[in-house]
Write a protein that binds this DNA or RNA. Structure first.
Length: 570
DNA sequence: ACACGAAGCGCG
DNA sequence: AAAGCGCGCTTCGTGT
């Protein structure tokens, strides 16, 4: 059952449509629903059996779902027109379709609209705010406009290249992306379990008692005084790179930057307290008391996840640095009473994805090992695991210099298929072409200025052009691997969501997904439900592999830790 | 006063 | 150790 939902001046407009996007012959008339009625209507429709559950088609999940969740209503599935439209507009699988060619001229999301980050923060999600919010943001998307957009997207999908399952893969990507949008809203709603008392204890241990606003914590102040003495610079501000650089030079410390790794080359007595200062200063400014006040409430950290925020398909986030929770403070992430945190990550996901993409049977044999790098080390690097890891990551990132660059020929001799695959992606990018992930997400084409830069006259311009081209080659080289890993992770997440919903529905386990980070998930579960959740996580990983690649002999193992506190997960 | 880029560092 | 990829955030410092 496909239901279009559009904002309407007196509430929401709801219309049943066919899968192709035509008004449904049995019930073609739109239905108007007021703001206060909507959660009840949605809840009622969601009580149908899973096979008959509606697929909600809406412009942006972010505009509708948070308020529904706040009203206590979850939905089984949706179709996010904005996210799917972006994929279809750029995918090589649909490049020949009218949709892709029109999308360039009239994108669904007006490029004139300022990025969401520049808009005022949304009002607190409550039922009253639902319509004001939606109507305010997308006044021009009426029911019929959205229906036309949906029909156009379905037509493009139907017209996608059917060879090698490309159409099915793309359809899977659209479903996974839409599921991701729901999961993002649900995780924001749930929040990461966060013990403020433990966080404050960590801050006190590292920094001393909470300072007055605008003052340095005691330990930072002490280190600052020590630095001023050691560097004979009574007014030094170590937070200013320029100021710091001058002070270092005055003391004969000849560094070109004030980065950690460069400072560590020096043995001057001021270096140790300086590095300590930088470490603690970072903790204070990025995840200190101000962060705690701003982002944690009622025992939960609630960041906003931005699905489709990275061109490769990875998620981005907004607010609180959700994807950069430093190890130092992970002890504050703590399960509630009677609960556990289940932290699972896909081991060495990107190299394994490369093996599957390139169908490199020799590397697949190495990947049969639980530790892929150890397997590769045994095959081609005399058992030296560190070397094997450096070489393989260098191939994925496009390293040319240093140890990683030197190891490339050795890696290429041992694994011509895998290395050839990423080399091909790099050459495509250098030539101005696009590359595509396993499920059909394509890299953006180069800008006009990129092509202009390639038409160079002087030798100097030519050198610059080659450097720019190589840089784009590294991007496309990495894109196919990072993006296909994101495809896998999106399917893993969607499959896990479905299994956790089933466990919740039959009343056996009230577990919730609370965090996702590229190749890692966190589930907060009652102790009695831990085993069932672990099975769900592992089954979902196996399902994701099968969905992307079919029955190929490449393993995607997940490592699972059951802990009270996130800092014990690795 | 405010905007914006660079530097630096956190995460995968 | 960083290097080679992808991000977000804070602080400076400069330009308007």
């Amino acid at each position: 059952m496909y239901l279009l939902l559009a904002a309407h001046s007196h509430g929401a407009a709801l219309q049943q449509v066919t899968q192709a996007g035509d008004p449904h012959p049995d019930r073609p008339e739109p239905r108007l629903i007021s703001a206060s009625e909507l959660p009840g209507v949605v809840r009622h429709l969601e009580t149908r059996p899973r096979e008959a559950a509606p697929r909600w088609i809406w412009h942006r999940t972010q505009d509708w779902y948070p308020a529904l969740l706040a009203a206590g209503v979850e939905v089984e599935r949706c179709y996010d027109l904005s996210l799917c439209g972006t994929i279809l507009a750029y995918s090589e699988f649909t490049a020949h379709t009218e949709y892709a060619q029109q999308a360039e001229k009239a994108p669904l999301d007006d490029p004139q609209e300022p990025p969401r980050a520049l808009q005022p923060p949304p009002p607190p999600a409550d039922q009253g705010a639902l319509f004001e919010d939606v109507r305010h943001r997308s006044p021009r998307h009426t029911l019929s406009e959205l229906r036309a957009e949906y029909a156009a997207q379905q037509a493009a999908l139907a017209d996608a290249d059917p060879l090698e399952n490309k159409r099915k893969r793309l359809q899977l990507l659209l479903a996974a992306e839409s599921a991701g949008a729901m999961i993002a809203a649900e995780m924001q709603h749930a929040g990461v379990p966060w013990r403020e008392d433990l966080h404050e204890q960590i801050l006190a241990d590292y920094l001393g008692p909470r300072p007055q606003p605008g003052h340095r914590p005691a330990k930072l102040e002490a280190l600052n005084n020590e630095l001023r003495n050691l560097l004979n610079s009574p007014a030094l501000n170590p937070d200013s790179p320029q100021d710091l650089m001058r002070a270092l030079h005055r003391n004969g410390i000849e560094v070109k930057s004030t980065r950690q790794w460069e400072l560590m080359e020096s043995s001057h007595p001021a270096i140790e307290p300086l590095l300590a200062y930088k470490k603690l200063s970072r903790l204070h400014s990025a995840n200190g008391w101000a962060w705690l006040d701003a982002w944690v409430s009622d025992g939960r950290f609630r960041p906003e996840y931005v699905v489709g925020g990275v061109v490769s398909g990875r998620w981005a986030s907004r607010g609180g640095g959700a994807l950069q929770i430093p190890r130092q403070i992970r002890g504050a992430v703590h399960a509630g009473p009677g609960h556990k945190l289940i932290v699972a990550d896909a081991s060495q996901l990107e190299p394994r994805v490369l093996v599957a993409l390139a169908q490199d049977s020799k590397m697949a044999a190495a990947a049969r090992d639980k530790d892929l790098y150890a397997g590769i080390a045994a095959q081609g690097f005399g058992g030296d695991r560190a070397k094997a890891k450096t070489a393989l990551l260098g191939a994925i990132y496009g390293a040319t210099t240093g140890e990683s660059g030197r190891l490339m020929p050795q890696l290429a001799r041992t694994y011509p298929h895998a290395v050839g695959f990423v080399e091909q992606a790099a050459r495509e990018g250098e030539a101005g072409g696009t590359v595509t992930t396993r499920l059909g997400r394509s890299s953006p084409p180069p800008s006009q200025s990129w092509f202009r830069s390639q038409q160079s006259a002087t030798a100097e311009e030519q050198r610059r052009a080659e450097s720019i081209a190589r840089s784009r080659g590294r991007f496309t080289r990495n894109f196919v691997v990072q993006g296909s890993a994101a495809d896998w992770a999106a399917c893993w997440l969607a499959e896990l969501r479905r299994r956790l919903r089933a466990l919740r529905a039959d009343g056996s386990v009230q577990a919730e997904l609370v965090f996702f980070l590229h190749d890692e998930v966190m589930v907060h579960a009652p102790e009695a439900g831990v085993a069932a959740c672990i099975r769900a996580i592992e089954d979902a990983a196996a399902a994701a592999k099968e969905l992307l690649f079919g029955p190929i002999p490449v393993e995607f193992p997940v490592s699972v830790a059951v802990v009270d506190s996130y800092d014990n997960a690795k």
